[in-house]
Each structure stands twice: as C-alpha cells, then as structure tokens.
C-alpha cells in the first residue's frame, strides 16, 4: 500500500513539472506569480520546416492590474518536433520571457503554449500559432511578394511602399480570415484569374489568369489559406499536443 502511495506521489510530482520533456530542468523556483499571461511578440510567424523562426517568442506575465511582474516561472511546450531554447524561464524585470522556437519538419500550423501558475497554483495558459509553409505555399508566398503585397499589405517600408491607400476600394490583406475563409477555393481562383469583376467586385483587382499559370494561382490560394487568421478550417494540418 505504501509503495502504491509513493508511486502515486512520484507520478503526481512528475506531472507537476510543467515541461513535457523530462530532460529540461522542470522545477524553476518562481519568486512571484501573476494572474495572466499575454503575448508580447513572436506569434503567427511564417517559418520554414525544421528551422528557427526569425523572431523569438516573447510572452509577459502580468499581475491583476496588468503590469508585468518579475520572477514568475513560464514554461513553453508544443507538439513533438518543436524545440524551445530555453523551454522554461523566469520573467525578467519587465515581466517577460523570451524563447527561440524551431518548428517541426512538416508543413502546417503549429500550436505552441506558454504557461505559468497563479497564486493558487492553477495553470494559466497562452496559446500561439506558428506556421510552416510547404512547397506549394512557399511558391504562393514568393508570388505574393512579387505581385500582390504592394496592394494587399497595408504596411509600407522604404523599399516597398504600400499602394493600398491609393485605391478606392481597399483590398483584403491575406491574413483577413474573417472575410477570405468564407470564400471557396473556386471563388478565390476566379477572382485571381479574372479580376474583381468576376465576382462583381472592383476592377482595381486586375485579372492575373493571362499572366500567372494555373498552378501559380493554386499556389497563391494555398498560401492565402495557410496564413488566414482566424485559421481556415480546411487549411491543412494542425499540430497540437495530444
């Protein structure tokens, strides 16, 4: 009976360690606890299979009044194949923890999680999505950068000034899942190939069907589906922890 009890205790202790990987130093001595965990930066990045994301993931632990607190323990975890350096850490003076993330070997959407505990020991979680593009989506991303972004992306840089403000009908950024997810693949192909008028929309969207090939347009659609936010339902694989 005693042995069973000890075993149960041991298992509980193991499970209490927040990292799924037992190799990681799981028990960080938190000196403070927060009430909320929020993303500072690094979510919804587009990466390549098996490679580190361009930007690290930064999360912040806040107290009840919304200020970052130092010394709270944060653990990062994700589906198999995703690695975090470091996988856990204590928040710095501004309440933040930074971790470099490398995604898995397959294309798809990866759900990663950052967690901390509040004063009562309850786990508070923050879920972030990161995207790995496959071959077809990579082609789409390249075509997007060449032909589409200058009107469809509101962000301007000195190298690439956005043309969005010059248009009388504002184009939808491709991340705008709320609108684009409601359109079928066939509709997207039609509007790209034949221009806005094909769906009774503005002629400011020109027809690309005589410039891009069918497979180019299919690649663009797959890219649009991959970056949609909120995610496109039939948008391919989602990797999450079981």
């Amino acid at each position: 009976m005693k042995q069973v009890l000890i075993a149960v205790c041991a298992v509980t202790l193991l499970m209490a360690g927040c990292s799924r990987k037992s190799k990681q130093p799981a028990l960080l001595q938190a000196t403070a606890t927060g009430t909320a965990i929020v993303e500072s930066s690094g979510g919804k990045q587009i990466g390549y299979a098996g490679m580190p994301l361009d930007q690290p993931v930064v999360v912040q632990v806040n107290d009840a009044s919304g200020n970052g607190i130092a010394g709270a323990a944060v653990c990062f975890s994700g589906p198999s194949g995703v690695s975090f350096t470091p996988a856990s850490g204590l928040t710095d003076s501004s309440g933040q923890v930074t971790s470099a993330v490398a995604l898995g070997q397959q294309a798809g959407r990866y759900k990663i999680m950052a967690s901390t505990r509040d004063a009562s020991g309850k786990t508070i979680e923050l879920n972030l999505d990161e995207i790995v593009l496959g071959y077809q989506q990579t082609v789409g991303a390249q075509l997007n950068a060449q032909y589409c972004v200058r009107c469809h992306d509101p962000e301007s840089t000195p190298q690439r000034v956005s043309n969005m403000d010059n248009l009388s009908v504002k184009p939808h950024p491709f991340t705008e899942g709320d609108t684009l997810n409601k359109m079928s693949d066939a509709d997207l192909v039609a509007i790209i190939s034949h221009g806005g008028p094909a769906l009774n929309k503005s002629p400011e969207m020109p027809p690309w069907g005589y410039t891009l090939s069918k497979s180019d347009i299919a690649a663009l659609v797959s890219y649009i589906r991959a970056v949609a936010d909120p995610p496109y339902e039939a948008g391919g694989l989602v990797y999450a922890q079981k």
Partner: peptide, 18 residues
Amino acid sequence: FACQSCHIADYKTDKGYI
C-alpha cells in the same frame, strides 16, 4: 481596367504608384 490603381495619368487626380 482601373489603370489608375497603379499608374498616374493625371497628377491632380490619380495616386497609384506601383
């Protein structure tokens, strides 16, 4: 063809600069 989306034919009215 909504060419003014990307080109300027008349500097007073058009703004497209792709």
